[in-house]
């Protein structure tokens, strides 16, 4: 990557707290270069979804960002007025959600739901939006776009709904897509098709993706870089190939050993060692103490 080019997304030392003072994000720093897929991997409670939400500006009201900057193509989101920030986020980012069923309004047809965003937020004409959506449905290999556009969400299968949402996400040519566990709810064979599709569209459109997942298998297949999270802290960050060749942090190693592999059943599915968790706990405690000192 060109060191002079601005990263598509640059998160610098982001910390967020709950009202009870608990830190849910612990000085998270990461950058997503243009056109690159960055995986955020971790178990539940690791804060991976939280980071995606922070980028899209949809954090729950109880979570407060107390420190750090987020730069979207060089523009500091924290320095913008609320309205300008919404417009910028709306124009340059998109989301592929985990659950394609709840992400779609059950009482509206697919067609208008897909064009809505293009017309309302980007101010496109109806015809232009319509043509664009059809083009994207073709790209996600939906054979009968006419029928699908007239369907209600429940009339489509899970895989089809996710294709529709992928098409909608890429339609506005965003610079960055946050994909939040987009294949977790799907069967493995469908998951493979969807991952292929995301990778293909990502390559063709040159879109950067922040890919949130709990599955190291998916990380290995889709991403170029990866951040491993534990309790809201980035414990390891590396090129994906390097991470799988030689994981550095004990937690990363433990996670890899715990992930099932049918090719090697007895070397995988190893329970995480207590010592690793104890090490993580003291690492977090030390980081919190160091962080509190200047912050009172």
């Amino acid at each position: 990557m060109n060191a002079l080019a601005k990263p598509c997304l640059d998160i610098r030392s982001l910390s967020a707290v709950l009202p009870n003072g608990l830190r849910v994000l612990r000085s998270v720093s990461l950058a997503v270069e243009p056109g690159e897929v960055r995986a955020l991997v971790g178990e539940s409670g690791a804060g991976k979804t939280m980071i995606g939400k922070a980028v899209l500006g949809v954090l729950p009201s109880s979570v407060r960002i107390v420190e750090g900057d987020m730069l979207l193509e060089g523009e500091d989101l924290g320095k913008l007025q609320a309205k300008a920030r919404r417009t910028l986020i709306g124009a340059r980012t998109a989301l592929i959600p985990q659950d394609p069923l709840t992400a779609l309004n059950p009482s509206r047809r697919i067609g208008p739901q897909m064009t809505d965003r293009l017309v309302r937020i980007l101010g496109w004409s109806g015809e232009k939006a319509d043509a664009r959506i059809r083009q994207l449905l073709d790209e996600v290999q939906i054979r009968e776009p006419e029928r699908v556009l007239k369907c209600y969400p429940h009339e489509l299968s899970g895989g089809m709904r996710q294709r529709v949402l992928i098409a909608a996400a890429f339609a506005a040519e965003p610079r960055l897509i946050v994909a939040d566990e987009p294949t977790t709810a799907l069967d493995v064979t469908v998951q493979k098709q969807i991952l292929r599709l995301i990778a293909q569209l990502q390559r063709e459109h040159g879109t950067a993706i922040l890919f949130v997942t709990h599955d190291l298998g998916v990380v290995a297949k889709i991403s170029q870089k990866v951040s491993v999270l534990y309790a809201g802290k980035v414990v390891e960050e590396a090129e994906t190939a390097a991470l799988f060749a030689a994981p550095q942090h004990p937690y990363t190693r433990a996670l890899m050993a715990a992930t099932p592999r049918y090719t090697d059943p007895f070397a995988s599915l190893k329970p995480v060692d207590e010592a690793v968790l104890a090490g993580l706990a003291s690492e977090i405690a030390a980081a919190d103490q160091a962080w509190r000192r200047p912050h009172g």
Partner: peptide
């Protein structure tokens, strides 16, 4: 065989996502 092939193993395999013989980006 399809079921087995669809499982994403936690190892690097550039060909896994490619439908045809395309070079990885």
């Amino acid at each position: 065989r399809d079921l087995l092939a669809a499982i994403p193993l936690p190892e690097i395999d550039d060909a896994w996502l490619l439908p045809a013989a395309k070079a990885p980006a």
